[in-house]
Computed example of a mutant assay.
Amino acid sequence: MKSFMSWSLTGLLSLLLIQSVNAQNTKGYNLGDAVADFRLKNVDSRQISLTDYRTQKGLIVVFMSNHCPFSQAYEDRLIALDHKFSSQGYPVLAIMPNDPKAYENDSFKNMQARSIEKGYPFAYGMDETQATARAFGATRTPEVYVLKQTNAQFILEYVGTIDDSPQDSESVQRRYIDEAVTSLLAGRPVQSPITKPIGCAIKWK
């Protein structure tokens, strides 16, 4: 009986430890939080950071990857969002958070090739240590965070998916990112500030 109780207690502690680690992996910024600065290696090999966008009104941060079919399905829509909002002070910043050892398509070399092939008008940085993805609490690609610059800080105003039709752009009913940025530009609160991201799970190291 004693050994059974001891085993049960050990198993319970192990389970709690696993749950704690998982919680840490997905813990991130909440709405209204100020986002800390970060540095990434862009596809042009220069270092980029959040402070590089200090002249902007805000930023559309999207975690995406080359291999994920959901990310691929949204590429043209992300390009369209950047074309629409970058001139209004809300450019797109794409971040690749995956361990490239999991998928060769997500290597830095292939990020560069994809950026050229699709003609990305926005920066596409590699989160080599995955520290930025963990700080945001990102879990999927694509997953989007809309930030508004307030008092020299970037404040999280929206987190979730791009729209409500990941596989068919012709069937979109709600354009969540478009709605969020349009509201922020008009000085209004975001109507649907949290939505469920739909995509591939981030491949952690």
Results as ranks from 00 to 15, higher is better:
1 M>T: 11
2 K>V: 15
4 F>G: 11
4 F>N: 15
5 M>A: 13
8 S>T: 15
8 S>A: 15
9 L>A: 14
10 T>Y: 00
11 G>V: 14
13 L>W: 08
16 L>M: 08
16 L>G: 13
19 Q>D: 04
20 S>V: 00
22 N>K: 11
23 A>T: 13
25 N>E: 07
27 K>H: 12
28 G>P: 06
30 N>G: 07
35 V>M: 09
36 A>Q: 13
37 D>H: 11
38 F>N: 14
38 F>E: 11
39 R>Q: 12
39 R>Y: 12
40 L>P: 01
44 D>P: 06
44 D>I: 02
45 S>L: 10
45 S>I: 11
46 R>T: 14
52 D>M: 14
62 V>P: 06
64 M>T: 15
66 N>A: 13
67 H>T: 02
68 C>F: 03
74 Y>H: 15
74 Y>P: 11
77 R>M: 14
78 L>A: 08
78 L>W: 11
79 I>H: 02
82 D>P: 09
87 S>K: 03
95 I>F: 03
99 D>H: 10
102 A>M: 02
106 D>P: 05
108 F>P: 10
109 K>I: 09
109 K>F: 05
112 Q>T: 04
114 R>G: 04
114 R>M: 11
115 S>M: 05
118 K>E: 04
119 G>A: 05
123 A>N: 12
124 Y>V: 00
124 Y>R: 08
124 Y>E: 05
127 D>E: 09
128 E>F: 00
129 T>D: 02
129 T>E: 02
130 Q>G: 02
130 Q>K: 01
132 T>K: 00
134 R>E: 07
136 F>S: 08
138 A>D: 03
142 P>F: 01
143 E>A: 01
143 E>C: 03
145 Y>S: 03
145 Y>D: 01
146 V>S: 02
148 K>W: 02
149 Q>R: 11
150 T>S: 07
150 T>R: 08
151 N>Q: 04
152 A>W: 07
153 Q>M: 15
154 F>D: 09
154 F>H: 10
156 L>W: 04
156 L>Y: 05
157 E>A: 13
159 V>H: 14
166 P>H: 09
166 P>R: 07
169 S>V: 15
170 E>A: 07
171 S>R: 13
177 I>E: 03
178 D>E: 05
178 D>V: 10
179 E>Y: 01
180 A>W: 09
183 S>A: 12
183 S>R: 08
186 A>D: 10
189 P>F: 01
189 P>L: 01
191 Q>C: 00
195 T>K: 08
196 K>E: 15
198 I>A: 09
201 A>R: 09
203 K>D: 13
204 W>Y: 12
